[in-house]
Amino acid sequence: MLNEIVCAGLGGQGVLTAGKIMMHVALEKGLHTTWFPSYGNEMRGGAANCNVMISDNKVASPYADHPDVLFAMAERAVDTYMKTMKKGSIIIANSTIIPKDKEYRDDITVIKVPATELAQKFGNERSANIVLLGAMVKHTCIFSKEDFEKYMCSYFESQGKGKRNEQNIKAFEIGYNYI
């Protein structure tokens, strides 16, 4: 089973990190995975995206031509990727940033989670990507909640950022429990 995932948004929203966490969890679960980034020269504000492929078998192309999942932190992500998505695919949309009246294809499931707002209330706007990851794990069948939390923490530990793990789990659960 091949999952083609696109994480997209603006530079600084943590979309590349969200993709790296998915890849790390996949590896820990013994799955095959690739991660390919694309971003502008800007550190913040320009378009940023990564393609994450997760499969039981060796992954040939690292390019997500027809995404199964769009992890959308900003409106531009939807504008860019929705047209190439598979029928029956899913968009996890950050509805704080993407307008409420945004039109979506009717053969795609859309899960709207105000990730930025929830993260602000929680006290750290920069956790919006983790909040949205919680929603993604809940509404897709790629990972279990337990595995994802465990290996997300080991990812941050491997990056020397393990001390924020308690906060990250909280942010993750806010997204997981929202809908």
């Binding site: 790296k20 890849m23 590896l27 095959h32 995975t33 690739t34 991660w35 390919f36 980034p37 690292p62």
Partner: peptide
């Protein structure tokens, strides 16, 4: 550039 920038185990 793609093979160089992409990540894999």
């Amino acid at each position: 550039g793609t093979i160089g920038q992409m990540m894999e185990p």
